[in-house]
Each structure stands twice: as C-alpha cells, then as structure tokens.
Design a protein around this nucleic acid. Structure first.
Lengths: 145, 145
DNA sequence: TATTGTTATACTCTATAACTATA
DNA sequence: TATAGTTATAGAGTATAACAATA
C-alpha cells in the first residue's frame, strides 16, 4: 500500500506564505484600484515618496526584488499618470524617480485605503504578532539575497 | 515642504509577505523544475498524495485559494504526465483527483528537493520561528475567507 | 436553484536576452 | 569591464464570464 510520507501541504512555509500573500495582494489591489494603482505601482510610489530626493530605479529593483526591466515599465506608468517624474541623477546614466505633489497625495489616500483593506486578513494579529512577522519576513528576505 | 507621512514600505506586511513569498517561490520552482513541476502543480499533487481516496477539484480550489477553472488546467497537466488520474466521485458531477504510483514517487523526490531549496531562505529561522510563522499565516488565511 | 467542472478570454506578473549609454 | 537603464518577447499566474451536467 502506498502511504503518503511527505510533509503536509499546510506545513509547507512556502505554500503558506504564497497563499497568505495572495490573499493580502487581492485585498490590497481591490482597495488600490479606486486610486488607479495596483500593488506594484503603489510600492514604487511609496519608495519615491519616502525619499525627498528620489530613488534610483536600481534601488527600487533591489528593495522590491524585481528585475530592473520591470521597474522601467512601472515607473513609465506612474510617470504617464503624473505621479512621479524622472530627473537626472548624480551621474549621467542614473535617473532619479521623484514623487510629484499629486503623486504624494495619491500615495497618502491609497495608503490609507490599502491599510484599511489589509485589516480584514490581518484582524487576528495583535501588535506583537505583527512586529514578529515583520522581523521574520525581513530575515527571510535577507537570507534570500 | 512635502513630507512623507505614510507607513514605510518595509513596515507593510502585505509587501513583506509578497516579497518573501516571491523569494521562496523562485527557489522552490528552480528545485521543482528538475522534476518537471512548478509550485502550483506540485501543491495539487501533494494534496492528491495526502488522501488515499483522492480530492475533489473543489477541495483543491478551496485549500489553494484558486478559482476552480485554474484547477482544471493544473490537473490536466498532471494527468497528461501520468502523475494523477481523474476518477468518478461520489456523485456524477464530482471527479476525484488521485495520485498514481508514479505521481507519488515524483512527489516524494520533488518534495525533498523543494524542502532543501527552501532551507536557503529559511536558514535563519529556528523551529519555534517556523511554528509561529505557520500558525500566524494560517490565521491570516482563515481571516481572508 | 445551487454545485461541480469546463472552456475561453483578457490581463497581469515574471523571466530572459539583447541593447545603449555612461562610468 | 561594469553599471544603469531600456526594449522586446515569451511564458506563467490571475480574474471573469459563460456554459453543461448533475444535485
């Protein structure tokens, strides 16, 4: 008789991470849609808003874990809708992504909507749970480099 | 002067989840590729292997958080390569997905490879970290229904 | 009427290669 | 040689709608 010996799917951290992540992304995208954004564009916009002087596309790619070619497209979309602009960087091959005033307003409103939407899935987690989760996920990311 | 007031991206649990999840999925897909699988097909195969009598496609869709139409395609691929077969279910509209002996062997080997690959990103987490992470992610999923 | 499975379609995300310009 | 950015393309993943068969 063939008996299943492997790890149950619901013990697989990769599976649990992607399933929970998918749920959060779906909820967040629904909320961001009303602001003309999706999670990836929103993430780029937040990074641009965090730095008064802008971020390089390379930095965006590194923080988000995306290929630089994907960042080009995301920044194009944000630039086309007036949320960010590309400015010349410290050397002539680098371009800085800087949030516009309109982009900052959208980011505030969209961020509030996103955080509210995430409260559904995250409702059962107290502040301690959330802090531990952030810390663990950051460690996983660091070990993935 | 415009000052950024929102939550830093690296405090956003949705972002941290999707970034860590992406890293795990990439590592796992690389390992599974040698066995002709990717994470989604592998997840369906594991569910089929967990139950001697097979799972309905509806159950697969519920556990994995996928639309039933996506499950059809995944099961088609597993069936085309002889890893699972569809059998008549308890009523005539239900079909049970059952792992074949070959599918069980692939699942064992692929599972070992997947777990080994995940040890890179997960290296920094001890057993307690992993148990807490499983528990929290399961709670997030339950609250997402 | 509701459920299970299926087909089809469109869109988004991911991965890769090749290229330009600059350092 | 190496780095930042860009273009193009193919493949994988996701979201919906509509439908047939069965309960």
């Amino acid at each position: 008789m063939e008996v299943f010996m492997g790890q149950p799917l619901t013990d697989d951290l990769g599976f649990l991470l992607s399933r929970a992540s998918g749920a959060l992304v779906r909820a967040t995208n629904t909320a961001l849609g009303e602001h003309g954004l999706r999670v990836r564009q929103y993430s780029v916009l937040v990074l641009a808003c965090e730095r008064e002087d802008g971020v390089t596309q390379r930095e965006v790619a590194d923080v988000l874990g995306l290929d630089p070619s994907q960042v080009v497209v995301l920044v194009d979309e944000l630039a086309d809708t007036g949320r960010v602009e590309r400015r010349p960087g410290p050397d002539r091959r680098t371009r800085l992504v800087v949030a516009t005033p309109a982009g900052r307003r959208v980011c505030e409103a969209a961020g509030a909507a996103a955080r509210a939407a995430q409260e559904g899935p995250l409702a059962g987690l107290d502040d301690g749970d959330r802090d531990r989760l952030r810390e663990v996920l950051t460690r996983v990311w660091a070990a993935s480099g």
